[in-house]
């Protein structure tokens, strides 16, 4: 124990601070994921449609988000809006905006991909059975799309959770930052604390991401039946 430096986590309120940091990261990523999934579904449906102008606009949006590092987006939204418009967004709002902006674009593209991956014959067969367009979408296309989407969106959510470590750059103290603080504060007394503390942080990320993965696997299985 001593050599791994896990003991520093039991000094004072260190463990509670780490959990608090985890809650900050989880809060930002879960709110952002919820917003992203909701808006992303709309965006994906529009993108899969036939309107060239809408497709073009979303294409630009998606490419912008893709080539822009999340760190740059965070700086633009947190510091940039203050400089240009004088808005004083809280760091948490800024973080949620950035991760939703990013997540929506990625989710939209996933939904678009899932929608167009449904073979044309599915539409044709459904129509041949006499279903109207609404029913075709609701009973044939959507369930297949959602099933294809689950593993992809889980991947996106876990990526959002992991990327929240960047919010320390706009002054938010999340789990990884707390870990660094604990390691540094004990640099002299337990120089090896980094190993133990980061191992615990790894476990914490795992504990957050794992149930999401399990829930997705369960849904996937259930809806496959």
């Amino acid at each position: 124990m001593q050599s791994l430096g896990i003991d520093v986590l039991f000094k004072g309120k260190n463990f509670a601070r780490l959990l608090e940091g985890l809650w900050v990261a989880a809060r930002v990523s879960l709110i952002s994921s919820a917003v992203s999934i909701l808006l992303g579904i709309f965006m994906g449906i529009l993108m899969a449609g036939k309107n060239r102008i809408i497709q073009g606009i979303f294409r630009v949006y998606l490419e912008t988000v893709r080539i822009m590092p999340q760190m740059v987006l965070l700086f633009i939204v947190y510091f940039g809006t203050t400089r240009v418009f004088g808005w004083n967004l809280s760091a948490e709002y800024a973080a949620v905006i950035v991760f939703s902006f990013w997540g929506t674009a990625e989710m939209g593209d996933l939904v678009r991909g899932a929608l167009i991956s449904i073979p044309k014959i599915q539409y044709d067969s459904a129509r041949a059975l006499g279903m109207d367009e609404k029913s075709v979408f609701q009973y044939v296309i959507l369930p297949q799309t959602v099933r294809r989407l689950i593993p992809l969106s889980i991947n996106l959510i876990t990526r959002i959770i992991k990327t929240t470590s960047l919010i320390m750059m706009i002054g938010m103290v999340e789990v990884l930052k707390v870990a660094q603080q604990i390691i540094e504060a004990n640099r002299r007394t337990s120089p090896n604390a980094a190993f133990g503390v980061f191992a615990v942080v790894f476990l914490m990320y795992f504990i957050v991401c794992w149930p999401i993965g399990r829930a997705a696997a369960y849904l996937e299985k259930r809806w496959a039946e």
């Binding site: 603080q181 604990i182 540094e184 504060a185």
Partner: peptide, 20 residues
């Protein structure tokens, strides 16, 4: 006031969550 929170001993956070 902007300070470092992980640069001991200049600016860091102690085990009770206080800046030191």
């Amino acid at each position: 006031i902007g300070v470092f929170s992980d640069k001991s001993p200049f600016g860091y956070v102690d085990e009770y969550g206080d800046y030191q």
